[in-house]
Design a protein around this nucleic acid. Structure first.
Lengths: 254, 254
DNA sequence: ACTCCCTATTACTCCGACATATTATCCGCC
DNA sequence: GGCGGATAATATGTCGGAGTAATAGGGAGT
């Protein structure tokens, strides 16, 4: 078998194993990173564990060392692992993980999400989003309000059972954060949005939508449109509380 | 010149250019990532710009394509760039950047930091840290209090002019976030800690320490130790406000 | 028991070739 | 003349192997 024939035959091995390993537009090293990332997040590799050497592991995965190394660089950039010559590649302690990275968050939710971690995320939402709504009420302009209104309309049209509906939900929250004129808050939107998306899917999985989420969102919108900072914060606080309640009950029932 | 002789001669080219490009423990691809990362954060490459091709750019930097590619994977993992076959590697829009990543934060502050962005970060601190202090006051145990006390003592000993002192400052804030028993908040500690560190250095650079930060910190500690949630939040709020004031004035004077 | 050095192991870097995906072009067709 | 699908060009993606540098961990020496 010549080199040319050997090339890329191995991609099949990765492509067919598991859920979303490899598709068009998804690179091989990305698939490896996904595979290892979920393995680490799920606890298959515990902190301080040492991964097998490059050559051995790459061979086991049936990919070249380049692809494997690039995947490790990705994990390293997200704080999941660190590698040094002679010492090997070891999984870092959990507090070094960049859990707010959208991709890492996705890996965390691709298995059975830790219920304690979900609680943490909602607690963070309960801190950040009401404050963001307060700022948004003070700083929003017409374009911001239009974006929120459009997102609300789309939510009504599609419901949270569809991907389009969940996307509209994210857009609504993102529009609020955008109205705060705060880059740091906006970045959290990507993370929180991803988390909301995962937990929303969880709610749907467990049982039919138990409660219409539209009124909560409308209350927030109205307060922001009216420029009432205190009411906006209060309304958003309620929204997050209700969402947490729904998620908690659906996870416990399961 | 044989292959062996050619290898690694090129590292000198990177090693000697600039401040913290390459040292022991710092890998080549890390240096490249640092270089490109700061270039992007400083605006040298604007969003939607397309970087020169791998071969050309790698040659320009005098590194191999592998090292360059691994650097790009890092940047890609942090949401700064994305590359597709034939289309090239392009800088992503700013709202895709993972600005809360500690490394990205460092790149943002390695040049002239955008004053608007600094304001955003302090606004985020003003939202998160008082809430964290409130939770910490409710959930802290003896070990948490000891960690805070030790950090305070170290701050007193070294002052913020030294790296040891700034490290103690970070430890203090980290201990508070740790006491919240919230993983998501804890992750922010790395980001916020980095931000605090950079801005503190800025304050020092501009002029001698204008104000003794210890009393502010002690107030926070006392409230947390007493389990007084409201007072803890209030004290932390004040601390962040004062820090912002110091930073703002020192940046404007400069 | 402690420090220093030395060696073996491991990641790091380089190289050159080939595969693949996407874009741009061009041609034929309507 | 405009439009759609084959086609070619090009940059990224993947591969395998060879050589280099850094460091952990043990061994020699004090």
């Amino acid at each position: 078998m010549t080199v040319s024939e050997a090339n890329y035959n191995n991609t099949d091995a990765i492509a067919r194993q598991g859920d979303e390993a490899r598709g068009p537009g998804r690179r091989l090293h990305g698939a490896i990173a996904h595979k290892l990332g979920t393995a680490i997040l799920s606890g298959k590799y515990a902190p301080d564990d040492i991964l097998s050497g490059e050559v051995a592991f790459a061979e086991e995965l049936q990919v070249s060392r380049s692809a494997y190394r690039e995947a490790i660089q990705v994990l390293s950039a997200k704080g999941l692992v660190a590698s040094r010559p002679k010492a090997g590649t070891r999984v870092l302690p959990r507090d070094r993980w960049n859990l707010l990275d959208p991709e890492v968050l996705g890996w965390a939710f691709s298995g059975e999400p830790n219920i304690e971690f979900v609680r943490s995320l909602f607690e963070l939402r309960a801190i950040v989003e009401p404050a963001a709504a307060r700022l948004a009420a003070q700083r929003r302009d017409k374009a911001d309000l239009k974006a929120m209104k459009d997102a609300l309309a789309a939510m009504r049209r599609h419901t949270l059972a569809t991907e389009a509906g969940r996307s509209a939900d994210r857009d609504f929250h993102k529009a609020i954060l955008q109205a705060t004129r705060n880059d740091a808050l906006l970045v959290l939107s990507a993370s929180i949005g991803a988390a909301v998306n995962w937990t929303t899917q969880f709610k749907q999985r467990a049982r039919a939508l138990p409660r219409n989420p539209i009124p909560d969102h409308v209350r927030v919108y109205d307060a922001i449109a009216a420029g009432d900072a205190a009411a906006a914060a209060e309304a958003m606080n309620l929204l997050v509380d209700l969402a947490l309640e729904d998620t908690r009950s659906s996870m416990e029932e399961k």
